[in-house]
C-alpha cells in the first residue's frame, strides 16, 4: 500500500539517526506511528540494546521477537523488535546452516561473544542483516509483510560506517558467507527503497554533526533522506519585538502597564517583574536569532526538512501521537 502523497513514497526502510540527546528514538517511534496510520503495518527496530522503544511506549523490555506495540491513528499497526546481535547470530546460523546446537556450543566457548563484539563489522552486518530481511520479507500472497521498517540507528557519528557494511567487512571477508550476506544488505541499503533521516536540534553542535553526517553519507553513496528538526519552540513574540530585544534593551514600560491591567502585580512589584520578564525576552530573542542561523545552515544540505514541536510535558504516548500527526501534516509520512 503505497502512499504517493508523501515525500517518501516508495521508501520502505527509514533509517533514523541523530546526535545523542536530540530525541532520535522518539522521532523514530513517532515516524513509525505516522507511517502506519491509515491501516498500514510498520516495524520499528532498535539495535543498541538500550530498550528505548519499551521506555517510550511504557512497556516491559522487548524480547528478540517482533510484537505489536501500538495502534496507529485511523488504524494500522506498529510492531517492534529489539535486535540482540547474539540472538541474531544464532538465528542466522540456524537459518543458513541449520546449526542450532553448534550455535549454542559456540556461545559457551565465547565465540559468539567474540563474533558479535570483537569481529569488526560483524555485529553491524548481523543487525542490518536482520533489519533488511524484515524489509524484504514477503507473505504467502507475495506481498511484503511490512509496508515500512523504521530503524532507530546508531548516532550520527557512526551511521555511515554502520550502514556501509560491505566496506566494513571487505578487509576481512573477501569471499564467503559474510561477504554474501553483506552484499544482500548492501542491495537494500543503497537502493531507493532506503532513506536515512537525521534528527537534530536548532543548536550548533547537533547541526554541525548533522551536516558532517550528511556529507559522510553522500561520500559513501548512501541515500540521505530528510532532516527532522526536533523540539522546536513556537515563537510567540512578534518579530518587531524580537528585533528590538536582540539589539539591546527591550522596553519594560509596556509590560508594566500590561501586568497591572492583568492584575498580576502592582506598583514597584510590577516594575521589578516587568524588568525580569524583559530579561527573559532578551534571552529568548538571542536564542531565536541563533536558531535562525542554524536553520539557514541546515538548508544548505538541500534536504527536505520537518519541524517537530517541543512537547511541554516531555515525551509520553500522547506526545508521540502529536509528533506523528505533525509529521503527517508536513508530508513526512
Amino acid at each position: 500500500m503505497d502512499s504517493p502523497d508523501t515525500d517518501w513514497a516508495g521508501v520502505r526502510l527509514h533509517v533514523v539517526t541523530g546526535k545523542g540527546g536530540t530525541g532520535k528514538t522518539t522521532v523514530a517511534a513517532a515516524l513509525a506511528l505516522a507511517l502506519a496510520s491509515g491501516g498500514r503495518k510498520v516495524l520499528l527496530v532498535e539495535v543498541e540494546g538500550r530498550q528505548g522503544i519499551a521506555q517510550i511506549f511504557d512497556l516491559p523490555p522487548l524480547p528478540y521477537e517482533e510484537r505489536k506495540i501500538a495502534v496507529a491513528p485511523s488504524g494500522g499497526d506498529v510492531f517492534a523488535l529489539s535486535i540482540d546481535p547474539e540472538a541474531a547470530m544464532l538465528e542466522y546460523m540456524e537459518m543458513f546452516y541449520g546449526m542450532r546446537s553448534a550455535g549454542r556450543a559456540l556461545t559457551k566457548m565465547g565465540i559468539v561473544d567474540f563474533a558479535t563484539t570483537v569481529a569488526p563489522g560483524f555485529r553491524d552486518v548481523l543487525v542490518t542483516g536482520k533489519t533488511t530481511e524484515a524489509v524484504r520479507r514477503r507473505g504467502r500472497n507475495g506481498r511484503r509483510i511490512y509496508d515500512a521498517v523504521v530503524l532507530d540507528a546508531p548516532p550520527t557519528g557512526r551511521i555511515a560506517r554502520f550502514l556501509n557494511v560491505t566496506q566494513e567487512v571487505a578487509g576481512l571477508a573477501k569471499v564467503g558467507p559474510i561477504k554474501n550476506h553483506s552484499e544482500l544488505v548492501n542491495n537494500v541499503v543503497k537502493s531507493p527503497e532506503t532513506a536515512v533521516h537525521f534528527v537534530t536540534l536548532l543548536e550548533e553542535m547537533p547541526v554541525q554533526e548533522t551536516l558532517d553526517g550528511i556529507a559522510e553519507l553522500r561520500a559513501a553513496g548512501l541515500p540521505a533522506g530528510g532532516i527532522f528538526v526536533n523540539m522546536v519552540r513556537e515563537s510567540l513574540l512578534p518579530q518587531a519585538a524580537l528585533d528590538t530585544a536582540v539589539k539591546g534593551r527591550f522596553d519594560a514600560g509596556e509590560l508594566v502597564l500590561g501586568l497591572k491591567a492583568a492584575g498580576v502585580a502592582d506598583g514597584a512589584e510590577a516594575t521589578a517583574m516587568a524588568e525580569a520578564l524583559a530579561e527573559e525576552v532578551v534571552e529568548h530573542a538571542h536564542r531565536t536569532e541563533l536558531e535562525k542561523a542554524e536553520r539557514a545552515s541546515l538548508a544548505e544540505a538541500g534536504l527536505k526538512s520537518y519541524e517537530l514541536p517541543l512537547l511541554a510535558d516531555g515525551v509520553d504516548l500522547a506526545g508521540l501521537y502529536e509528533l506523528a500527526e505533525s509529521m503527517r501534516t508536513q508530508g513526512a509520512a
Binding site: L237, E254, G258, L277, E280, V281
Partner: peptide
Amino acid sequence: AAEDLESRGEHELTAAVLRLHAG
C-alpha cells in the same frame, strides 16, 4: 493572566510575554 488579556483584546505584547514566561 495571558488568557485574561487576550480575551479582553488588550496588551497583546504583554500577553505574549506572559505566554513565553509560562512556557
